[in-house]
Write a protein that binds this DNA or RNA. Structure first.
Lengths: 202, 202, 202, 202
DNA sequence: CTATAAGCGAGACGGTACGTCCCGTCTTAGA
DNA sequence: TCTAAGACGGGACGTACCGTCTCGCTTATAG
């Protein structure tokens, strides 16, 4: 019992791709707020209606344009050592994020997510949750192996890693490079207090 | 050498305050993108030109409307113990940030800062740098007291603290409460690895 | 050789008519300077862009709103007698001009035509030339019939007739009625000097 | 017994003249509608209030700026021959009118007079009535001398002369030169019908 | 092997807000 | 007290886009 009434003509692949391409290109040129559906349609050589038919909002359009890039081709490392795994993972993530335009897209989506709960949910889903889950699992494995202290707060550990990442991405005061990935992970593990002090606290 | 042309009629305090008040009120109601100069002028009972005369952009207006709130009345703690100091500091900062509207304002400014370098600089100046400096100094004092390991990367420590904060503020997946302040600081100091592991690494 | 780009959605008759109607109505109420595109759009229930799309200026809008009224339904008389013909013609013209709003429209257009050569040309074309030509032809026929002296300056005759008309229309010191039409034409033909004097001059 | 209570400071002659000068200069550059009080004040190096203090409206300002030019130095001819007198008079008037800027000023005033009865009255008073009276008196003298037929309509004669003048001034289709003055007056006197026809009519 | 209905490009439509210009009123400091 | 300066609340300008709505044309199945 297929509910499709009569699928005579289907979505045009050409238009679909042209729209996404125009979106990324314009977003990089004008920024999120400077991006207009009108301009996307013009640049893609497409009627506005064709965009409105398939995407409910500018945010949805931008999300789709960048989600491919985000999800693509991250291999989850499994070396058996937590520090190594985390480092390898963030090394990959950082290199993808540094590609131009991404920060503008993310920040724009974040803005609208502040007032649009639906978008917020989709944003969480597409850009946040999946990666948090991956990291949480790596930490869990580390815990099982005894590389993580039982009293450690894993949620906060996840926040520290991704928080630092977003912070540098959005503020731009320092680069998201390999060195940062290495030091960030290391410091998360060992803390900044000297060993002696550590012993005292515990 | 003073280039002031002549001090004739001066800026109206009444208008100035009404504009900032309308800005915060509307921003909380409609969000950053939904905030229009036109509406601010109308709600403040002011001509649009009066806004454009004193603020170059919506972003500048929002920055001023919130900067007061941000800078105001944070006492820099000095208990002699690093963990205590950091906790007290972030406890204060978190409580201010949780006030409604702030997240929307920040996210909006962040969006525009992605394409406007002038705004980016002002944003850094008004919302980021001062607080980073305060934390860096606390850490420095801790280092001198022997509460911080000499090989610790203080910049990354600062990033971890503020990064986690912004992350929760913008994504909203978990609250910015006292408990978080306490746990975040504690974990920064001791890391998540168990003591034995720590010793091994060093 | 046709340069039409493509006949997609066409101009809306409803909007077109509503705009012209609002224009005349507002012009009569507020005068030419008091007429704003904004108000026309509002009264016509139309977006401003719809006006700007089809008319380049307020003047063009007013011209179109009144040109219909001007050109419409003037029958060119041909009684075989010059005085009769001129009288019949101006009787018709006067009755149309007396309709309210017309003077305001004309004077406003005249103002802008003083600085806008394009408008000046269109104004000449739409409001002046056609009628001058009609009168010139009547005079020409009169000349052929011997009702006009060969040495008469026909251009000045045309100026006298229309000049007097505009003068009364704009200054408003005396009415544009049938009696004026009759006396104006008569005096143009015979002059104001007594017959004896006339003979002397010639 | 001077009734002035305390003549501490009086109207500044410097400002007054600078304002009128700026008015003419700007009116010629931008036209009547393009003339703004703001620009006049700026160009005259004068506060806006100084203009509003002494003139109730833009129209009043323009009237004063041009009235001097209009009234000035017209000698009323009295040669004893009507045709000569009228020709001499209009020759003078035409030469003054041809000066640049005057047409713009007049047309602008005419526009506003269509909706502002007070201005209309002042306009009549300043630009129309005085000259009509002069012409009417010349015609009256001609009548007494027998140069004008008793049945002639003098009002219409005045309308024809001034009407033709305004018409050419505003429409600009033909020049206001000496030849026109001569031919216009001549044709007013003798009409355009041939002598034989004239005799028939009377 | 069509027919036919969806998708398509184009772009006009009723709107909202932009950032600017100027209005006429007001406040201020100085001459 | 008048002046130059210019800030004030306000109205309109002409432009950019919004999201919706017709237009004809194109095209890929379902009959």
């Amino acid at each position: 019992m297929d509910s499709k009434p009569k699928p005579t003509r289907r979505r045009s692949k050409r238009a679909h791709e042209a729209i996404l391409a125009a979106t990324t290109s314009l977003l990089e040129a004008k920024g999120y707020n400077g991006l207009s559906i009108e301009a996307v349609a013009a640049q893609a050589g497409v009627g506005k209606q064709t965009i409105y038919r398939w995407w409910p909002s500018k945010a949805a359009l931008v999300m789709e344009a960048y989600s491919a890039m985000v999800a693509s081709e991250i291999t989850i490392p499994d070396s058996g050592r937590l520090e190594e795994d985390l480092y390898r993972l963030f090394e990959q993530i950082f290199s993808r994020l540094s590609s131009s335009g991404f920060g503008k897209a993310i920040a724009g989506l974040l803005t609208e997510a502040q007032t649009d709960p639906v978008l917020a949910a989709e944003f969480l889903d597409g850009f946040v949750d999946w990666r948090r889950k991956v990291v949480r699992q790596l930490l869990q494995k580390g815990l099982e192996r005894g590389e993580v202290a039982p009293e450690a707060n894993l949620e906060i550990a996840v926040d520290s890693l991704f928080g630092s990442m977003w912070y540098r991405l959005l503020i731009g005061h320092a680069p998201l490079d390999q060195q940062f990935a290495k030091d960030l992970v290391r410091q998360l593990l060992v803390g900044i207090a000297p060993p002696s002090a550590n012993l005292c606290f515990r």
